[in-house]
Computed example of a mutant assay.
Amino acid sequence: MNVLIFGASGGIGKWAIHYALQNGHQVTAYVRHPEKMQIADDHLTIMQGELTDKEKITRALSGQDTVIWCVGIPMKRSYPGMNSLEGHRVLIQAMKEQGVKRLIDWGTPSIQSPQDRKSFITIVPGILAGIAFPQAKKEMVSIGKLLQTSSLDWTLVRFMAPKNTPYTGKVKVGFGDVKMKFSISRADIGAFMVEQVNSGCYIGLMPIIGS
């Protein structure tokens, strides 16, 4: 598969790159700062660009089968602009124009899913985020709505507390109906997102993952 990864130099993005290459995909990394990329591979192309540069994003989408979005949102009470939301708007429009359907994205349980069952993990994190990070929550929820109203084959992977701990391969998946720890390795998140490239299991769904 030809896979385009945004935010490829970040904490989760670098693992998505790692596992996409390991799984034999042809990977394009779209990043603001190519000098931060620490991976070199014959099957990896690095492209520099901004999240709202439609011309470059359209060029990056040429020939792609799947897009993986790993761009983070600032965990601050307030910050100027909503770059991730604006980037999503540009990306979704460009994907439609280029005929690329598959998008694998990420968020937190602040984004509610129709499949969610009432539980601590589907209710409390959203309340706490609204108090501590109101703007980040607003941006994340808006992205979730944007995906749900798009015509793409999207999957939105939700998680709570990513850690820089080793890969385990033991990821629990649920919608508030599975007991799990909030903490999860960034390596496990990246690997799980890459697994969705060849899986239709969670198309149109927002699974919560943990350890």
Rank of each mutant, 00 (worst) to 15 (best):
M1G: 15
M1T: 09
V3H: 06
V3Y: 09
I5E: 06
F6P: 05
G7T: 14
A8E: 13
S9H: 13
S9L: 06
S9M: 04
G13E: 06
K14C: 12
K14S: 15
A16P: 14
A16S: 15
I17E: 11
H18Y: 09
A20W: 07
N23Y: 12
N23P: 06
Q26A: 12
V27P: 01
A29R: 02
A29Y: 07
Y30R: 04
R32S: 03
H33S: 14
H33Y: 11
H33T: 14
K36L: 02
M37L: 11
M37F: 09
M37P: 06
Q38W: 04
Q38G: 12
Q38H: 06
T45E: 15
T45A: 10
I46S: 01
E50C: 05
T52V: 14
D53A: 01
K54N: 12
E55T: 11
K56N: 15
K56T: 09
I57F: 10
T58Y: 08
R59I: 09
S62W: 03
S62D: 13
T66C: 10
W69M: 13
C70L: 05
I73C: 00
P74K: 05
K76V: 10
R77V: 14
R77N: 14
P80N: 03
P80I: 03
N83G: 15
S84D: 15
L85D: 12
E86T: 04
R89I: 04
V90M: 08
L91H: 06
Q93G: 13
A94Q: 10
K96L: 11
R102T: 14
I104G: 09
I104Y: 02
T108N: 12
P109E: 00
P109W: 00
S110H: 02
Q112K: 12
Q115F: 04
Q115P: 09
K118T: 14
F120M: 14
I121R: 05
I121D: 07
T122W: 00
I123D: 15
G126I: 01
I127C: 02
I127G: 03
A132V: 15
A132E: 11
A132W: 11
Q135W: 00
A136L: 01
M140T: 15
M140I: 14
V141C: 05
S142F: 00
S142K: 08
I143H: 03
I143L: 08
I143S: 04
G144M: 01
L146W: 00
L146I: 01
L147Q: 07
T149P: 10
S150L: 01
S150H: 02
T155L: 02
L156W: 02
V157H: 07
V157K: 05
R158W: 00
R158N: 02
M160R: 09
M160L: 15
A161K: 08
A161R: 07
K163W: 03
N164V: 11
N164F: 10
P166R: 00
Y167F: 13
V171Y: 02
V171A: 06
V171T: 12
K172W: 07
V173F: 07
V173A: 03
F175N: 13
F182P: 12
I184D: 04
I184C: 01
R186V: 15
A187K: 08
G190F: 01
V194D: 00
E195I: 09
Q196I: 11
V197D: 11
V197R: 10
S199E: 08
G200N: 15
C201K: 12
C201R: 09
C201F: 09
Y202L: 06
G204H: 03
M206E: 13
M206I: 04
P207I: 01
I209Y: 02
